[in-house]
Nucleic acid binder design. Structure first.
Length: 179
DNA sequence: GGTGTGATCGTA
DNA sequence: ACGATCACACCA
């Protein structure tokens, strides 16, 4: 359960960035038509088939990066990942504002998978990085997950492409959720 | 608050 | 040809 865990990054200039994860989506593999891994492993999705706890980063719409945490698949040889969709700023808000000039208010800094990557400086060079060892980490600082996480269908999927699975999970009422 | 549209390019 | 999106314009 990633909800309410802390995403932490130390930028090159030593600034600590931290944000509390408030919205995620689960993606599976061969049984999930909405997943990049649906049609098996490709160069792009290789990391998704690898060890859990690593970062799967992909490029989409010709301009955006999005980041997933690789998870343990239901069956060996299959794939699973959790897309980081939104987070609440905790530390390093100044740097986040510099990287997200278009954000009108602070709750827009991390409210969306590509926005989150922009604020944290996550790009393709981070693909495959180990979240337990690298400059990007996910930390449990003792804040419990919401007792009853809210759920919905996943966002941005075409009809019939797994869009009916209720695999979006979020902290109910959090102001930093994606649109 | 909501809806609609263009941007921009790697992937299959 | 299309996408696990965003920003902006416009309407309410």
């Amino acid at each position: 359960m990633l909800l309410n865990k802390l995403l932490v990054a130390s930028s090159p200039d030593g600034v600590r960035l931290a944000a509390r994860i408030v919205e995620v989506e689960a993606y599976r593999g061969s049984d999930d038509a909405g997943s990049h891994a649906y049609r098996g492993m490709t160069p792009r999705t290789e990391v998704m088939f690898g060890p859990p706890g690593h970062l799967y980063v992909y490029f989409t719409y010709g301009m955006h990066w999005c980041a997933n945490v690789v998870a343990a698949p239901g069956r060996a040889g299959d794939a699973a990942a959790v897309l980081l969709r939104a987070a609440a700023p905790v530390d390093g808000i100044e740097l986040m504002r510099e990287r997200r000039v278009k954000a009108r208010r602070d709750r827009d800094l991390l409210a969306g998978p590509a926005r989150l990557c922009q604020a944290f400086g996550i790009t393709g060079v981070d693909n495959g990085s180990d979240l337990g060892r690298g400059p990007l980490r996910i930390v449990d600082d003792g804040v419990a997950p919401p007792p009853t996480p809210a759920t919905s269908t996943r966002i941005g999927l075409a009809a019939g492409r797994g869009d009916d699975h209720p695999w979006r999970f979020f902290v109910p009422g959090d102001p930093n959720l994606s649109r």
